[in-house]
Write a protein that binds this DNA or RNA. Structure first.
Length: 791
DNA sequence: GAGTTTGAAACT
DNA sequence: CAGTTTCAAACTC
């Protein structure tokens, strides 16, 4: 794996350079799928290309983040090309948070282009885009916002710096492995003229070689005079990195990670399965955006290019977009998402086309530029750009006070591409393709509930798991949650109920994520309603299950919170969405409760999230344990707020302190408190309680012993002959009798099953049958004994 | 099981 | 922040 140069590695945070997870994603690209990266509305399903199943494709999603000025500049490139044919299909979707008229037009022109088969780019603006299928080169020139860039004050030295605005990307190697990808980096001053303006100063190219070798080409089929490339540039390019090391004072360091992975063993019998993988990273110093380009060729080449502009102390979102690689008959797609603290993982499985001819075609055809709305979330740093009049497929959740940005994916068959884009130094960008069909691949998104270090260790596993799922995820069952477009809820994840995780929520055609109490995972696992990992390889040690038991913000959940028997609630008016409800207050879903009109379930995740948010707004620590552990251990446990009892004397379970078996403290506002150390009433009650507990334990032990004895009795196979002729009933419990009894029970079970009896009734009938069997045994024993006596 | 008591949560 | 209301659990009968 040729990823980055050592020097670049040294410059990057560990999180960023931890590319193993990305590497792992090359594995599943076995069943080729059409390039389906660029989101395209379903109505634009016009056939665009005649790319055959044998045609390799290059799919790229480029998302250059704004470098500094908050000017968003995103570029989506989807290239599909045949290795042996000059025909190619390209979908080009620039995405701007704000766009000038020029850029918008260009964007519309490109995005809406319906590229006929084999023709490639007829509708693309030649000035902004150029393709040369003959020499396997594509030149992308992102339209820059001239009005926005005019005052940026970038020095001339930007010639050696990759600028976010107006940068050109020269992608070569269409269908050829080993060919270079060139990134053209024009000077800042020519931003806005990049769309084919011949007056543009000489652009700078960054060459990325897909096939493993890199080269620098100062000029390559673009207007303008070539710029001499410095040795530094060459070196940087050699390492496949478009280096940008603060050569411009006004520019923040930009680091580009280009990951190349080679997937061996790919065959060309089916469509190519593009995988664009990346990660959501977090860097306290800089933001990184990873752009991954994957290419699946006949030569089984799979590459990922990650370009990461870094600038401000902000979040880094590297989106991994991967197309699933099911066989051609599979019509469903998964949108796995993994997010974790410290390293937010976001993996998006792009939809797999039903047929090879659909994938790229759909994507490239008529990508209409739709107006976007910018939503500021959780602060001024984040903006969510979502297509108007369409359901957002990506929703960003900014957690106040949290360093991380959370993204909620709602990928629907009708949703248009949605881009999260940071308008400021913080960047969180994700691109998703509109899936044709969403499948139920394993998707997990976890709320940060563990230290970053822990999550960091889990990241590769998550991706690996996801990758594995890509190949055989069709049979998996997951948490079910409607993927309706949630409002821009910004729950304070740091204060979510203990062990809360975000669980995948596949719906019919949609994929979303639900805030799921960790306990509910256990609930689900224990119940027969939902099986998260049955026979499909969704192994419990990963993802949800593992994280669900991790502490939240250092606060440990109840040690046995996931296993202890939970008392069912009886809420009637609160819909179990207020803290009156113990289930809700404990961060659990209602399960087997007696509540009415319960909304504390996955079916009402929207309302539930709202309720959580409301509670957190009212009290940020609403879901934190009321009984905090003292510094010196359990003896110092005390109620975080104290009780307010007035009539119970704090010696009834009305009192939260007493209920928690702790004494009231100075922060309590109780009246007539008797719940203190020397209180005789308390001591008496404690003694009584202890005595009661002892009785319960004794009873339990007695029951256990009795069961053991019964079991032992039933397992006796040899009748015991008594010398006195007195035969106890159990002496008749021979092996044959036991077998006959079992037959009776099984037969009863079959009958009840066939008759569709409820489980409870079935159990009852079986037990009754067992009783009948026992009665017959006893009767036989008694009769035998009587006969013996008589004789 | 119905009704009452209680105090936290929610509301004003 | 205080007073009031709502709510569901705890408790009593």
């Amino acid at each position: 794996m040729d990823v980055v140069s050592p020097e670049l590695i040294n410059l990057l945070p560990d999180e960023i350079m931890d590319t193993e997870a990305i590497i792992a994603e090359e594995v599943p690209v076995s069943a080729a799928q059409p390039c389906d990266v660029a989101p395209v509305p379903m109505e634009t399903d016009a056939p665009v290309t005649t790319v055959t199943a044998q045609n390799p494709q290059l799919c790229a999603t480029l998302t250059p983040a704004p470098l500094r000025s908050g000017l968003p500049s995103q570029l989506t490139l989807v290239v599909s090309s045949a290795s042996s044919s000059p025909s190619s299909t390209l979908a080009f979707k620039p995405m701007f948070a704000t766009s000038t008229v020029t850029s918008t037009r260009t964007t519309a022109s490109l995005a809406g282009a319906s590229v006929p088969a084999g023709s490639g780019l007829q509708k693309l603006s030649p000035g902004s885009f150029a393709i040369s299928a003959a020499n396997h080169q594509i030149i992308l020139n992102k339209v820059a916002e001239a009005t926005k860039t005019s005052g940026m004050g970038v020095s001339a030295s930007t010639a050696q710096v990759i600028k976010q605005d107006g940068q050109k990307l020269l992608v070569t190697t269409i269908g050829k492995s080993g060919q270079p990808i060139m990134l053209q980096l024009p000077q800042k001053s020519v931003l806005g003229q990049a769309s084919g303006d011949g007056k543009s100063p000489a652009p700078q190219y960054k060459v990325v070689t897909i096939g493993g070798r890199t080269e620098l080409k100062p000029v390559m089929g673009s207007p303008g005079s070539p710029l001499p490339v410095s040795a530094l540039q060459a070196q940087q390019l050699k390492t496949l990195q478009i280096a940008k090391k603060a050569q411009v004072s006004s520019a923040a360091p930009i680091k580009y990670i280009i990951t190349k992975t080679v997937s061996k063993g790919l065959t060309s019998q089916t469509t190519v399965s593009p995988v664009i993988a990346g990660r959501v990273l977090n860097s306290p110093v800089m933001s990184t955006k990873t752009i991954s380009i994957s290419e699946s060729l006949n030569t089984s080449l799979h590459k990922k290019i990650a370009i990461s502009p870094l600038k401000s102390p902000s979040k880094l979102t590297v989106v991994s977009v991967a197309s699933q690689t099911p066989n051609a008959t599979q019509k469903s797609m998964g949108v796995p998402v993994n997010m974790a603290l410290g390293q937010q993982i976001l993996t998006v499985h792009q939809p797999a086309a039903v047929s090879p001819s659909k994938g790229v075609s759909n994507q490239s055809a008529a990508q209409s530029l739709k107006p976007v709305q910018t939503v500021t979330m959780g602060g001024s740093h984040f903006k969510t750009i979502i297509p108007l009049a369409t359901q957002p497929n990506v929703q960003q959740i900014q957690v106040p006070g949290s360093r991380f940005t959370y993204v909620r994916l709602v990928t629907s068959t009708t949703a248009n591409p949605t881009t999260l884009q940071a308008g400021g130094p913080t960047t969180s960008t994700m691109q998703t393709a509109k899936p044709m069909v969403v499948n139920t691949g394993t998707v997990r998104m976890s709320v940060p509930i563990a230290p970053a270090q822990t999550m960091k260790q889990m990241v590769p596993k998550s991706i690996t798991t996801t990758t594995q799922v890509m190949t055989n995820a069709q049979t998996q069952q997951r948490l079910i949650m409607p993927a309706t477009s949630l409002p821009q809820i910004q729950p304070n994840f740091t204060n979510l109920p203990p062990g809360t995780v975000l669980a995948p929520a596949p719906g019919t055609g949609n994929v979303g994520y639900a805030v799921v109490p960790a306990q509910y995972v256990a609930q689900l696992q224990q119940s027969s309603l939902v099986t998260m990992a049955s026979s499909s390889g969704f192994h419990t040690p990963t993802g949800v299950q593992t994280q669900a038991r991790l502490p939240v913000n250092g606060l440990s959940t109840a040690p046995d919170s996931s296993t202890r028997p939970r008392k069912p609630c009886n809420c009637t008016k609160s819909q179990c969405l207020k803290l009156y409800c113990d289930c809700f207050a404990n961060g659990e879903f209602c399960n087997n409760c007696n509540c009415n009109n319960c909304f504390n379930n996955l079916e009402h995740e929207t309302e539930r999230l709202k309720a959580i948010k409301t509670c957190l707004d009212r009290n940020p620590g609403a879901f934190k344990p009321k009984i905090g552990k003292g510094k010196q251990g359990e003896s110092d446990r005390r109620h975080s707020k104290g009780c307010n009892c007035k009539r119970s004397g704090c010696l009834k379970n009305y009192c939260e302190c007493y209920e928690a078996k702790i004494m009231c403290s100075s922060i309590c506002k109780c009246v007539g408190c008797k719940n203190f150390e020397e209180s005789p009433e308390r001591k008496t009650l404690m003694h009584l309680a202890d005595a009661a507990e002892v009785r319960v334990q004794q009873q339990t032990a007695a029951k256990t012993k009795l069961s053991s004895q019964i079991s032992d009795l039933l397992t006796r196979t040899t009748p015991i002959s008594t010398s006195g002729g007195g035969r106890l009933p159990y002496t008749f419990v021979t092996k044959e009798v036991v077998e006959a009894t079992c037959e009776c029970l099984l037969d009863q079970a079959r009958q009840t099953e066939l008759s569709g009896q409820p489980q409870a009734l079935a159990e009852r009938l079986i037990l009754e049958e067992f009783g009948h069997c026992l009665m017959r045994i006893i009767s036989s024993a008694g009769k035998a004994k009587s006969d013996c006596i008589n004789c």
